[in-house]
Design a protein around this nucleic acid. Structure first.
Length: 496
RNA sequence: GCGGCGGUAGUCUAGCUGGUUAGGACAUGAGCUUGCCAAGCUCAUAGCGCGGGUUCGAAUCCCGCCCGUCGCACCA
């Protein structure tokens, strides 16, 4: 666990991440990744893809446009739901959401009203500022999406995509054909999304440009439960809290069976287990720092029927914070695009004709990287980033014990060999202890040192980050040994 | 967006009741050392967020902006 200051200091000093454009004073809501941050993030993406595409043979990665014209975003609901009309009090300057004020005063929902209609209704109902009773000014639209002018006239409205998900829905029909009409079908996208956040804060937690990793699973709700091995997870405890407990730092363990008994679909619970496995086993998040958090109907997005957030407790962000979500979007998206595009989205599988439903596994990549930095970093005398070996920016570092007697040349030759298979790093500056310390702080799990015994054919030393223990390994065995250590197949055994 | 607090080398910080060659620690680079965990010595690099104002003189006082942070609002 590390404080916000510790995470930022490490990130800046060691080339993980920092505020974008800080040369010019910074640009709120945007962060850049340095060389180590980029490697860490890429490794996170690799294990994410491996884990989630591995859930089914029919799950694939695609890549789609980050700019979308208005019609699909109208159909998805973003144009209407993503735009709020704000009214500002002429006396105290406080801004309020017009629809909230109207709803509070008239107890009627007011959706999709224009700015002038809202102004008329506010006057009609005689609504004043709830804070100071001052007179309210004219309403103005605030859209969380970034508008763009595309083409020479810029007449056709377009936006930077507010989520990657739409790319999967827009390409559903094409991929369904290309993948030979099978369900379930999974389309994953790892890419950037953009939201004009009112107040971006807390490092990479809330940004205006961010990376999402999402898997949209298209399925037939009638048969999906029989298509996933739900029995295999029946007794697995799932760590979660209910909507009413979300503000408490608590969590319970309920088995999959119990969750199903409470009314969650078996296929939904199965995916909760798979997401939990990713966090606990692949990312190595301590169990007590992980939970799912239920969202009630009021908090859920308009399209979600069942929604649990994935949360990781972080000291730097002050508690459990959302890093992902498991959303049952029903047929909302495909049905919406069917209406918007007037193109049929229903498909026939075997004898059933249906508009597939969608289960969305959605993750904020930057938030995940931040969570790893928070949880895995222990600052102090022996500052160490305890990343899972595979995720570390550098897989293996190679050092000569001293800079004489031909050791540097020998070490460099070994480095040249290893770098073809691993993310390797060579260093001959300063003392050996300092080099180990530097590697500890960026999470390098294994360091290889060439010493005088190496020259006598007695192999090299292999050092483990977390125990600081060493073993001698014949140079020829090194690649295979590192391979199994980095993949997690083998553990470092000082006695071996 | 509103209000409180803040912004000094890469990092952490002293200085902030105006006058300092803006100090330190760590980090970084070069060299000498170095025989396994941030050792030592020598030298070096590098800073007052941006802009304006007050003043003989501004890191220091005032204003605007930017950025950060906490609270409110927002987070479909």
């Amino acid at each position: 666990m590390a404080s916000y200051e510790d995470v930022m200091s490490l990130s800046v000093r060691r080339g993980f991440l920092w505020p974008a454009v800080d040369l010019y004073g910074g640009f709120a809501g945007f962060y850049d990744y340095g060389h180590n941050g980029t490697l860490l993030r890429r490794h996170w993406e690799e294990v994410w893809l491996e884990h989630f595409l591995g859930l089914n043979d029919n799950y694939y990665l695609i890549d789609t446009s980050t700019i979308l014209p208005e019609p699909p975003l109208k159909a998805s609901g973003h144009v209407d739901h993503f735009t709020d009309l704000l009214v500002t009090c002429t006396r105290c300057g406080e801004s309020h959401r017009a629809d909230h004020l109207l709803e509070a005063a008239t107890h009627v929902e007011h959706e999709g009203l224009s700015s002038s209609e809202v102004d008329a209704k506010i006057r009609e109902a005689g609504i004043r500022c709830p804070k100071c009773k001052g007179e309210l000014g004219a309403s103005r639209p605030f859209n969380m999406m970034f508008p763009l002018a595309v083409g020479p006239t810029g007449k056709d409205a377009a936006f930077l995509r507010p989520e990657t998900a739409q790319g999967a829905f827009l390409n559903f029909r094409r991929e369904f054909e290309a993948l030979r009409r099978r369900l379930p079908m999974g389309l994953a996208i790892v890419g950037r999304a953009y939201r004009n956040e009112i107040s971006p804060r807390q490092g990479t937690y809330r940004m205006r440009e961010f990376l999402q990793a999402e898997l949209q699973i298209f399925f037939d709700p009638v048969v999906f439960a029989d298509q996933v091995p739900t029995a295999s997870v029946a007794d697995v405890p799932v760590r979660l809290c209910w909507a009413a407990e979300k503000n408490e730092p608590t969590a319970h363990d309920l088995t999959s069976k119990e969750l199903v008994a409470r009314g969650l679909p078996t296929w939904y619970v199965y995916h909760l287990v798979q997401v939990q496995r990713f966090y606990l086993e692949v990312l190595g998040i301590p169990r007590e720092h992980f939970r799912f958090a239920e969202l009630d109907a009021k908090e859920r997005a308009f399209y979600n029927k069942i929604h649990f957030d994935v949360q990781v407790r972080q000291e730097s962000l002050g508690g459990f914070k959302e890093v992902g979500g498991v959303h049952y979007r029903t047929d909302h998206d495909l049905a919406g695009h069917e209406a918007g595009s007037r193109q049929k989205q229903a498909v026939t599988v075997a004898t059933t004709r249906l508009v597939p439903h969608v289960l969305e596994l959605s993750f904020g990549v930057d938030r995940n990287v931040w969570a790893l930095l928070d949880l895995d970093y222990t600052p102090g005398e022996r500052a160490t980033l305890h990343l899972p070996p595979r995720l570390a920016p550098i897989g293996v570092a190679v050092f000569p014990l001293v800079n004489k007697d031909g050791l540097p040349e020998r070490a460099e030759a070994l480095y040249g060999l290893l770098r073809k298979r691993f993310t390797a790093f060579f260093d001959d500056a300063g003392s050996i202890g300092k080099r180990y310390a530097r590697m500890d702080e960026i999470g390098t799990a294994f360091c290889v040192t060439v010493d005088h015994e190496t020259l006598e054919g007695k192999g090299v030393t292999l050092r483990d980050r977390d125990t600081q223990k060493q073993v001698r390994v014949p140079e020829g065995d090194l690649p295979a040994r590192l391979e199994s250590l980095l993949s997690g197949e083998a553990r470092f055994e000082p006695a071996a």
